[in-house]
Design a binder for these strands. Structure first.
Lengths: 336, 336
DNA sequence: CTGAAAGCGCTTACAG
DNA sequence: CTGAAAGCGCTTACAG
């Protein structure tokens, strides 16, 4: 058998050095052409470009960035990608990143604090310029030294916890959940409801505390007193509960409430978080909703400005939460 | 006023060189300690570790990887993050990436071929080891030189188009849509349906062609002849169409069909892609579904194996598509 | 207009 | 057991 040994081209990719020797110029001249710097004769330029074409050279950005001292990279740490809000946050962030020449590292935590820390530190070890984090419930003190070392961080959807108490701070962009709950409860009251419940899952969760605050505010403003038991309802306990309306803390609670409902239409349901067929469920579900893309965009802009050198104390930006009425707040006929 | 000028610490992060001089050892010794290499006395090790602590040193992975010649980075290019399937694909991929020490770059295309190219090439310029792409409809010839240069690529959810015809190939992991459609249509036939429609949006889209193939196969197997008009239905045209059942190509088509339905229950609806409240819509929607996380995991494993040096011809892996029955295939009473 | 040297922060290969 | 030198692929600062 005729064993052919083909001349194997150098395995790695061509470098500027390869281009330089092929074109018969110095490394620096190739660099000038690649960067479009002035001061290279048209002939030299053409020769270098020819060598670039022939070799299929493409500059190694990682090497350039190492020398430059930055990385033009931002890290996004999500909680659960299948959550539509998080996907939209990402999308808003991506727009800002693209417009400013940043590439995005990403990862998800599954609400596991240890996984968040591993991911964030791995990204810091790659020297990301900034971090956008949907925080897990754990402490974020692990980030202190990184922030001090110059990494810009912004938290979205939830505020971070700092074990140190006052701790070091970072920017945050959050939906105004308290105000949303206030609006929703006021709306239910305006429709005649007096006994209103809250289905919030873990009562210690951040959103639960925010919704309770807004709820309490709206009830007080209407001169109503709420039975504490009303604010700790579960989907299972709902059919027998003495309330005529409920506010659910998230999509999964809303879905559970709809499923647990033995008599559709007996109770008015307001859900936090819109979903595709909310208007086709019977009765249609009125929801609280916010523009998650705006949250991502705002977070990105805060980061980009800080990376451009802006010096300002950390701030928290609240994004409005709006009520989308679907007629489900009508007071149940049988109770009129 | 008493103007205080505080001693500003060196702005950048500490490097191995800083650690070395603080510990009074050579750079190489620090490297040995950081990498856990043998052959350093306990005392020296302790001294170096002390310096690392004091300085808050954390190795720059980007620099290490530059020297090493790889990047331990994979790039994921999505189409639309709000699509639940894509989010699940990402999640499966992420598991494999984590387990193998890879970090993920990500970006989305909005089905814009030019944006896909920009993203992919930007990632290649950063020297990602591999690329996982949900392809846009355009040609992928721009990737040929990158693949030849050693970037591993795998396409998911849809196969890529190569303008060159036979073109160079890459691995692909796809849901078995044709088989899914065959199963769904056979199921409808078994329930008494004879006039079955297809609502697929753009008939030239990849999924539409696959579904049509499976549809045709099932109809032929049952000895039924389909009116060509039945396979190009739209949600708007459906109320007057002469069919008793329809298969919808994706969630948005399914939703549009449900909305356009003037007489709920008159027509059996099977949707491609499951959704949260599919069982609560009236009538409940039977769906075709596949495990998108498995697709992401499989794609990641193919990539990891190739990056480990596996030499094999490009292959396409099909992931099963299953029917989730919800009773909506029952033949409409009025037509019995 | 063009280039040789040094350096970004690490690792590799080799000495002592 | 420890270290000085060279190099990964680029850019920066300086000469000629």
């Amino acid at each position: 058998m005729n064993k052919q040994v083909e001349a194997v081209h150098s395995v790695g990719r061509p470098t500027m050095k390869d281009v330089a020797s092929k074109a018969g110029v110095a490394l620096k001249t190739v660099s000038r052409v690649v960067n479009g710097e002035a001061g290279v004769t048209p002939e030299t330029t053409k020769r270098v470009q020819g060598a670039i074409e022939d070799l299929g050279f493409r500059r190694n950005e990682s090497a350039r960035l190492l020398r430059t001292g930055q990385t033009a990279t931002l890290g996004f740490i999500a909680d659960d990608w299948t959550n539509a809000d998080q996907a939209a946050v990402y999308r808003g962030l991506e727009d800002v990143a693209r417009a400013n020449g940043y590439l995005l590292y990403s990862g998800s935590t599954d609400r596991d604090a240890q996984r968040e820390e591993q991911l964030a530190l791995a990204m810091c070890a790659r020297r990301v310029d900034g971090l956008i984090i949907i925080p897990t419930p754990g402490s974020h003190d692990y980030l202190v030294s990184e922030i001090e070392a110059g990494v810009a961080a912004v938290f979205v959807l939830e505020p971070p916890a700092w074990a140190g108490g006052r701790g070091p701070r970072a920017d945050a962009v959050l939906p105004d959940e308290r105000d949303g709950a206030r609006t929703a409860v006021a709306h239910l009251i305006a429709h005649g409801h007096r006994r209103i419940g809250l289905v919030s899952g873990d009562p210690a969760a951040y959103r639960a505390t925010q919704l309770r605050a807004g709820y309490t505010q709206a009830m007080a403003a209407a001169g109503l007193t709420a039975d504490p038991a009303w604010t700790t309802l579960t989907p299972q306990a709902l059919p027998g509960a003495p309330v005529t309306a409920v506010l659910c803390a998230d999509r999964s609670q809303t879905e559970a409430v709809i499923r647990a409902s033995t008599e559709p239409g007996r109770m008015a349901v307001v859900g936090f978080g819109d979903f595709p067929l909310a208007d086709l469920v019977s009765p249609p579900v009125t929801v609280l909703s916010y523009d998650a893309m705006v949250i991502g965009r705002t977070a990105g802009e805060l980061l980009v400005r800080r990376l451009a050198g802006e010096q300002a104390p950390p701030r928290t930006v609240l994004v409005p939460v709006r009520l989308i009425e679907r007629g489900s707040a009508e007071f149940p006929p049988q109770d009129r």
